[in-house]
Amino acid sequence: MDTRRTNLRQWKILVALISAAVAALGGWCAYSFGHLADTVSWDCGGGSCATNDLVSLFMPAAFMSTLAACVFGAWAMGLIAPAIFIAVTAWAFRSGLQAAIADGYTSATSVGFEMTVSLILFIVAGLCFLGWIPMFINNRQVARKVREKAAGLSN
């Protein structure tokens, strides 16, 4: 029984580390997209637009990697993982937009929607954090009761 608990703990640590790495990749993709989105060249003709610039795939990659990190991180660490990972991605995207403005790739007046999206992501991260607090407190109370019961049985 104890080896199962140890194995599960080791798996959770491994999944948490992999989730953090995937979230870091999502943050990098979000930053890169925010910074370079206005430099993508589009070919519009025949009623549709297309590009072969890899930067255009960074936001879907950021979304998918953050989502995967949140799902697996939530299993390993609880709701604190989505709170951290979503906040990191939102911060990276916002930083990329600010870097694009500073570098002159885009104007400050044209990123209102994108800044609103990053603000909404910060709010979602905050809600995940608020949801994690009672879970954390409950886990501590359960652990305390188990310790008390185990101490009472051994005496």
Rank of each mutant, 00 (worst) to 15 (best):
C29N: 09
Y31Q: 05
W28D: 03
Y31G: 03
V15G: 01
A81R: 11
C44M: 05
V15R: 05
T66H: 06
S19H: 07
W75I: 05
L54K: 01
S56E: 11
A81H: 09
A30F: 01
G45E: 08
V88R: 01
I80A: 13
L54D: 00
A68C: 07
F58G: 07
V22E: 02
G47W: 14
S65K: 05
T66Q: 10
G78Q: 09
M77V: 12
C29A: 13
F63P: 02
D38T: 15
F33H: 13
L67E: 00
D38E: 15
Y31S: 01
G73F: 01
F33D: 04
I84L: 15
L79V: 13
W91H: 07
F72W: 11
L67R: 06
P60D: 12
A62N: 04
W42N: 01
C44L: 02
A81F: 00
G46F: 10
L36R: 10
A76V: 12
C49T: 12
L25A: 15
V55T: 13
C44N: 08
C44I: 04
A20S: 13
C44Y: 06
W42K: 00
L79T: 14
L67K: 06
V22P: 04
C29G: 03
V15A: 04
A24V: 11
F72Q: 06
D53K: 11
A61V: 15
L54R: 05
A16N: 05
I84Q: 03
V88T: 09
C44F: 03
S32F: 08
A24R: 02
G78Y: 00
G27E: 01
A16Y: 00
S19C: 08
A23C: 06
A81Y: 02
P82I: 06
C29R: 05
W42A: 04
A20V: 13
A76E: 11
A87D: 08
L79S: 13
S32R: 12
Y31H: 13
C49G: 12
I84Y: 01
A62R: 03
V88H: 03
S48P: 00
S32G: 14
D53S: 14
F63D: 02
P60F: 15
A23K: 05
V22H: 02
A90R: 08
N52K: 06
C70Q: 07
F63A: 13
A20T: 15
T89Q: 04
